[in-house]
Amino acid sequence: MLDRYTFTVNGEQRDVVAEADTPLLTVLRNTLRLKAAKFGCGTGLCGACFVLVDGYPTPSCDTPVWAAAGKRIVTAEGLSARDAPHPLQQAFLQEQAAQCGYCISGILISAAALLQADPAPDEQAVVTALDRNLCRCGAQGRIVRAVLRAADRQGERR
């Protein structure tokens, strides 16, 4: 049965009409046309679809839309402020931290949550924070370096 659900996405309030158990990922990608979150497995096991739900990295493929109602959702599109890329995005560009890039949106979400909680993580903390994200291309080394670089930059700014 179709119902109306309301939540904020990247700071804006959105109303959608959907079946209660439609995955949040489908709503984000197809209804709201936000394509950053990717479909990778549909079962919460790869991290490609991660978004922040009230600040926590969450598999949107595995979150029914009813469970997102009233929450604050942030996708990788919403990480950069108007005109200013997120330090993570800058660092990923500088490190050229990707091969195909399909895993990157989800990884940025996990990394953003980490830097929020721990602005100066060490390598071990980064690895732990990204352990639910898969990258099949083997770009992990660069990705970890990019996250550490972003943390450094944030540190310098303070």
Binding site: K35, F92, A98, G101, I104, S105
Partner: peptide
């Protein structure tokens, strides 16, 4: 020359066939 395809992928802009509408 930095990779031309990476900015789209890092800023979450549609780029993959999966994103095509």
């Amino acid at each position: 020359l930095p990779r031309l395809d990476l900015p789209d992928k890092i800023f979450g802009r549609p780029r993959f066939i999966h994103d095509l509408e």
